[in-house]
Design a protein around this nucleic acid. Structure first.
Length: 737
DNA sequence: GAGTTTGAAACT
DNA sequence: CAGTTTCAAACTC
């Protein structure tokens, strides 16, 4: 909002230059050839952007910034196709169909985002995105190899698909692509970690520099909403969010990841300059730079990773990879099982390790990621759920596995946050933090984010188990006993999960819903409820005054809401009565400190400093803070200065209950009842209301809801946030199930 | 690291 | 739905 494009550009340019200079950058360059291509793309994109100017219609300052962000993404998208291979498909499409294409692309959101349901007659445009993805997959087959014993499979099919582009095959290709994407994302994460280790401070610096660029992300989503293109971005975002949620150390990495992801998506999506021109506004340049950087970095990182994996093919690595994957998978596993999206590839999930580890992983992981993304970014992502590169894939799966998706709550970031960190942690372990020391250090930082349980009697099959509750398999770091929450007991896990879900459909849904982003984003300056996030169910604290982690609201970094039955609520993020922290009686130095740390983090993030890792934030607190930034982070940061600045996570709380009842975005959060049926969410979210409902301004008024009605609300919120979130359902619906 | 506190989850 | 028990995280020492 406040950020000016010029500034951004300046920052970006600066960061860029720094990037290039940095050792890390050099290293990355050396690693991957891809980068060059990307840069080229970016250049192209840049050009395309140059002529495009945002329509006056969208003129609100906020929108502009957002658009700019989006432009960033868009740019990337365009470039992507070129990078990997300007080859055949590319040639066809790339040529300049310009605006018309862009328009089509927007319509094609489904394709772009996820795995397009196979359309009877894929247009050239449609084919392009897929092809592009395929190309990517082809280019980086190694990663897949690493995990899967039979990497060829995945790869080959893609090629075939590409060539043939038969509608039927397209689906498969999409699936594969999805898998690839998911894996790619994972790898990215890994690489980020590695690079971080290698680069050390340099990397961090780079990241910090790029932080600003990342901030644009938030805006991206909204913008995209207008054009269905959002889907990709959301995915990216979701992915990013996951990454971002990583512990302090990785905060930087995360950010990079975000930017990177966005870039990828953008490239994929936007395929055409023309489209960009339309969408993008002023910031083209600024966006572009970051995009390039991120893109290049990412690519390189990916390459490295891939190489590493390939090299390591050794069992050890493989196993580690598997574990990592599994973790990701678990959440979706159930759903997948129900409906195997990628049946071809999958052998039994469990057995799959050997066979198509990658495939499995990808399958599950992808869905999981998508889910996460949804949750995480919350509302934003819900509809999209894609990984950076998985946009398409995710989509496809989503659509195909509606039920599954439905099961998963789309709301909160909790999961995202939590999950992402986990993933990261796992990845780190596997990626190879060489020195135990480093490893330990990393883990510690990530610790908060990572889920590790210590269950002794629940066998990790109850919600008591954090891992299980998060839809994750327990892994090494866990100290659980008699753990059944492992791939080996998948059946049991799924069954148990089913039971729990039958009892409470939202049992595995994120507990905290964050809507702040939207509000701020939508730009109501008047509306200053930065942290509109709320705990779905509310807490029931009696002795902790909601000032300790015992309180789920506090733990989630959100204020208490009217839904809370807490006594003596002093939640620093906001009391259920809407009292401001300032109003709170002093005394909670501890809390205040924590809060302060959060604020600091937020501020930093906003300012682009972001070094969450360095911040002395309690693990959990850190997580929250990080999450928030992430959630809001890219997106909100700017729009939500209040968050950090105010030092109040949830200004909304100040408003008190009224806020919730108000038909504003914030309201959604609270309104969303736990009970929302996931299915409803899934189905409802998507289409119709979603984008449409959103007002041009992006502001949406949602009637006060309670209970599932909230689902509707939820949608509203999402829609509002996403603005133009493409109706996934419609796209997917045909095929799926 | 052991013990206590706390509140969610599970059970009745 | 309310009350109780179980559980594991959070916290304290």
């Amino acid at each position: 909002m406040e950020l000016n494009t010029p500034n951004k550009n300046h920052l970006i340019s600066t960061s860029l230059s720094q990037f290039e200079d940095s050792p890390v950058f050099n290293y990355i360059n050396n690693l991957s050839p891809i980068e060059l291509v990307k840069s080229v793309h970016s250049d192209q994109t840049f050009n395309s952007l140059a002529f495009s100017s945002p329509p006056s219609v969208f003129a609100s300052p906020k929108l502009v910034s957002q658009r700019d962000t989006r432009s960033f993404i868009t740019r990337r998208q365009l470039s992507d196709p070129l990078k990997p291979r300007p080859s055949q498909i590319r040639d066809d499409n790339n040529t300049s169909e310009g605006v018309s294409e862009a328009v089509e692309l927007s319509n094609l959101s489904a394709e772009q985002l996820g795995c397009l349901a196979s359309s009877s007659s894929p247009k050239d445009v449609t084919a392009e995105p897929l092809n592009e993805h395929l190309e990517l997959a082809i280019e980086l087959p190694e990663p897949l190899k690493c995990d899967s014993t039979s990497p060829d499979k995945s790869i080959v099919p893609l090629d075939a698909i590409r060539r043939d582009t038969a509608p039927e095959e397209v689906d498969k290709s999409n699936e594969r692509h999805c898998l690839y994407e998911s894996e790619k994302n994972l790898r990215k994460i890994c690489r980020i970690d590695q690079s971080e280790d290698e680069a050390g401070g340099d990397w961090v610096t780079l990241i910090s520099n790029v932080a600003d660029a990342l901030n644009f992300e938030s805006s991206i989503i909204e913008e995209h909403s207008e054009e269905h293109k959002l889907m990709v971005d959301p995915g990216t975002i979701s992915f990013i969010s996951n990454v971002l949620q990583i512990p302090q150390d990785s905060t930087n990495d995360l950010e990079n990841g975000e930017s990177i992801v966005c870039d990828d998506y953008s490239e994929q999506k936007m395929g055409e300059p023309g489209s960009q021109s339309i969408v993008l506004g002023k910031k083209k340049e600024a966006d572009e730079i970051p995009a390039i950087l991120s893109g290049s970095l990412l690519n390189k990182l990916v390459v490295n990773d891939a190489a590493a994996e390939v090299d390591v093919k050794g069992k050890k690595r493989e196993s580690s990879c598997k574990n990592r994957i599994r973790r990701l998978v678990f959440e979706m596993a159930g759903a997948h099982k129900k409906e195997s999206v990628c049946q071809e590839n999958s052998t039994s999930p469990i057995s799959g390790q050997s066979d198509c580890e990658v495939g499995h992983t990808a399958k599950y992981s992808t869905p999981r990621i998508s889910m996460l993304s949804r949750r995480g970014i919350g509302l934003h992502l819900n509809a999209f759920a894609t990984t950076s590169s998985d946009n398409k894939v995710v989509k496809t799966e989503t659509s195909s596995t509606k039920q599954e998706m439905s099961l998963v709550p789309c709301d909160s970031e909790d999961q995202v946050t939590e999950d992402a960190p986990q993933i990261l942690t796992v990845v780190r372990d596997e990626v190879g933090i060489s020195s135990p020391k480093m490893k330990r250090h990393k883990i510690e930082h990530a610790g908060a984010a990572c889920k590790r349980c210590n269950c002794k009697r629940s066998k990790c099959l109850k919600l008591y188990c954090e891992c299980f509750a998060a839809g994750l398999y327990c892994i090494e770091p866990c100290s659980c006993q008699d753990c059944f929450n492992k791939p080996a007991h998948e059946e049991t896990v799924l069954e148990t999960r089913k039971q729990i879900e039958s009892r409470n459909p939202l049992a595995f849904a994120p507990k905290v819903i964050r809507s702040t982003d939207f509000v701020s984003e939508f730009g109501d300056e008047t509306n200053k409820t930065p942290a509109s996030a709320r705990h779905k169910r509310g807490c029931n604290c009696k002795k902790s005054s909601c000032l300790k982690k015992y309180c789920e609201c506090f733990q989630g970094g959100v204020g208490c809401s009217p839904n809370c039955r807490c006594e003596g609520c002093k939640n620093t993020f906001g009391t259920k009565n809407g009292l401001d922290e300032n109003e709170l009686e002093g005394g909670e130095s501890e809390v205040l400190e924590k809060k302060a740390s959060d604020v600091t983090l937020c501020d930093r993030i906003e300012s682009g400093e972001e070094e969450g890792a360095d911040l002395p934030i309690p693990s959990e607190t850190a997580r929250s803070s990080i999450q928030l930034p992430m959630t809001f982070g890219g997106r909100l940061s700017r729009s939500l200065p209040a968050f950090g600045a105010s030092s109040q996570m949830c200004p909304s709380q100040k408003h008190g209950k009224d806020i919730f009842r108000q038909p504003k975005f914030e309201t959604h959060l609270q309104a969303i009842p736990e009970e929302e049926t996931p299915e409803i969410l899934t189905s409802s979210c998507p289409p119709a209301n979603g984008v449409k409902s959103a007002s041009p301004n992006g502001k949406r008024v949602s009637p006060p809801h309670q209970g599932f009605g909230s689902s509707a609300i939820w949608r509203c919120s999402r829609k509002l946030i996403l603005r133009s979130v493409p109706p996934f359902p419609s796209l997917n619906s045909p095929r799926q199930q």
